[in-house]
Simulated assay, not measured.
Amino acid sequence: MRFMIIVKATADSEAGKMPTEKLLADMGKYNEELVKAGVMLAGEGLHPSSKGARIKFSGANRAIVDGPFAETKELVAGFWLWDVKSKEEAIEWVKRCPNPMEGDSEIEIRQVFEASDFGDEFTPELRAQEEALREQIAAKH
């Protein structure tokens, strides 16, 4: 099962405060453990929302809204993509994580949909298309 582990933003991360050398070293060791255990598929930190944008959809219309965005606790400061056996295993890994924000912080765990989750609507043709796209992505990396 794949899970996205979402590190929530804080006022400091939104202000562009960079992590300390110690936190970077601690996270490096933690990420190394994840990789050695075969858990980590990807992981990155994100720039503050002031450098981002949102595109709002309303039917065929699109509206672009530049950051920053007001609700800090709803923003994402970073993420991992993990492959684990269960949500419980993901929780256990998160509990071992160094505090990513050096103060109060929050990490959210969300399961990633698999092809089988979509049922009959995900036709054999759509599955083949998805697999071909994944192969193209893998070939580029």
Rank of each mutant, 00 (worst) to 15 (best):
K51G: 13
A37D: 05
V84E: 07
M40R: 10
G28N: 11
G45D: 07
W80M: 02
G67V: 12
G59Y: 13
A25Y: 01
M27R: 00
A90M: 04
S49E: 08
N61W: 07
E21D: 15
K56A: 12
A15C: 08
G28P: 04
P19E: 04
S13Y: 08
P68W: 14
G38K: 01
M27K: 00
K17S: 08
A15Y: 07
R54V: 04
E89R: 12
K36P: 03
G16L: 09
E71T: 10
S50W: 05
L46C: 09
V76A: 13
G67D: 12
D26W: 00
M40N: 03
I55Q: 00
E92F: 06
I91K: 12
V35D: 02
S13P: 06
L34Q: 03
Y30M: 10
W93T: 03
N31W: 04
K56W: 09
E92G: 12
K22S: 02
E71P: 03
M27V: 11
E92I: 05
T72F: 01
L23C: 00
V35F: 12
A25T: 14
I64C: 10
D12R: 06
H47A: 09
A90W: 01
A37M: 08
W82M: 13
M27T: 07
K29P: 03
K29R: 15
V35R: 10
A15W: 01
E14C: 07
E74Q: 14
Y30S: 02
A63W: 03
A60S: 13
M40C: 08
F79V: 09
K22C: 00
D83T: 11
E74P: 06
G67Y: 12
